[in-house]
């Protein structure tokens, strides 16, 4: 099965249905509010762009959606279950259905293979992990098919045995994307994944985003690049003042925003 193939039968949420929902989120640091009553829904099999000025809280929102930290108030639900109202074990299981790619690649000091197999490795039992490590030391380890497919999606299948430190910035970011795809999450959160990349690497990442959508993955991409939102996103949410001021089909949001501040932001007239 190719990653581009729109076969999503194994997913419990059909495409277009809500999979990750944030409701009435409040969060801040050192007494300063960043998110103030934010509501957002990510649907399965769609790309949602989150745009807004720098410092508006896009990264904070993605960290909350990725379950890195607990919101001060409000709820985050995966397939209708409030993840902060469950046990640690269930929350870990929820967290393992969400992948995050950051602005920096943050690759491990290891080979591309070790990086991309990591997510799959840690989902195994300790016994399997030890066995896998022994096999790797003896040179007997085989590479899982999804790992190869993920690297093919970002055009780096040939780099499997390459040292991650030897990759260019763009290649490293593509490996970071493949690393998240390899364990087939239900939701993929991308925090400005192409802000440091050249047009070619950006195009590769955007193609990979479309491939993830085709597989039924719900993708949320925080970006300050409105053109990128127009290129890849089915829906776009505009964040201003710690909340979502407008959300809807990308074309409609950009062509005829209903909120006045959103229109000013899109037209570049908003002073912030």
């Amino acid at each position: 099965m190719s990653l581009e193939e729109p076969v999503v039968a194994h997913r419990s949420t059909p495409s277009g249905e809500p999979i990750l929902e944030a409701a009435d989120l409040y969060h801040g640091f050192d007494g300063e509010a960043v998110l103030e009553g934010l509501d957002l829904t990510v649907n399965a099999g769609e790309v949602l762009a989150i745009i807004g000025p720098s410092g508006v809280g896009k990264s904070t929102l993605l960290r909350l959606l990725g379950l890195f930290e607990r919101p001060d108030r409000g709820s985050i639900a995966l397939e209708g279950t409030d993840v902060w109202a469950t046990t640690d074990r269930k929350r870990l299981a929820s967290r393992r259905r969400v992948g995050t790619v950051f602005q920096a690649a943050n690759l491990f000091d290891a080979s591309v293979r070790r990086n991309v197999t990591y997510g799959r490795r840690i989902r195994r039992s300790w016994r399997d992990r030890v066995r896998h490590e022994i096999d790797a030391l003896l040179g007997r380890a085989t590479v899982d098919e999804p790992v190869i497919q993920a690297l093919e999606t970002v055009g780096l299948a040939d780099a499997l045995e390459q040292d991650a430190a030897s990759l260019s910035g763009g290649e490293a970011q593509r490996v970071a994307f493949a690393r998240a795809l390899a364990y087939d999450p239900d939701v993929l959160l991308l925090d400005e994944p192409t802000s440091d990349l050249d047009p070619r690497n950006t195009a590769v990442i955007e193609d990979a985003v479309r491939a993830a959508r085709a597989r039924g993955i719900g993708v949320a991409i925080a970006t300050h690049d409105m053109h990128q939102a127009e290129r890849v996103a089915d829906r776009t949410a505009v964040m201003l003042g710690g909340a979502v001021t407008e959300i809807g089909p990308t074309e409609r949001v950009f062509e005829s925003p209903r909120d006045d501040r959103t229109r000013q932001f899109i037209d570049g007239e908003l002073v912030y």
């Binding site: 890195f68 950051f102 491990f108 997510g119 840690i122 364990y183």
Partner: peptide, 15 residues
């Protein structure tokens, strides 16, 4: 060790 590397391990579902 950069915090980003630890974040990456956590983001991929690491305990």
């Amino acid at each position: 060790v950069e915090g980003g590397v630890r974040d990456a391990a956590y983001a991929m579902g690491g305990t």
